[in-house]
């Protein structure tokens, strides 16, 4: 179990490192956060994520009510 923790943490750190490098490269090569947000909203991405968040909240509430009552 301890060995698996090491493996998982190594993979996680590598992925985070690569992700941070990718974000840094994007901003260094001319990325703009306002433009990204605008494009995402135009593609209904923000709305999609918000709907997904709502769905998760509903699921948690349902189970919480079932286990601990209202």
């Amino acid at each position: 179990m301890r060995k698996m923790w090491r493996v998982i943490l190594s993979i996680v750190l590598i992925l985070i490192l690569i992700g941070i490098i990718a974000v840094a490269v994007g901003f260094l090569t001319g990325a703009d956060s306002a433009r990204i947000y605008q494009t995402a909203e135009n593609n209904n991405l923000i709305n999609l994520i918000l709907r997904y968040y709502d769905w998760i909240v509903q699921v948690v509430r349902t189970y919480w009510t079932a286990i601990f009552g209202s």
Partner: peptide, 8 residues
């Protein structure tokens, strides 16, 4: 550049 940020 935007694609790279989203992939990161």
């Amino acid at each position: 550049a935007d694609i790279m940020v989203l992939l990161g």
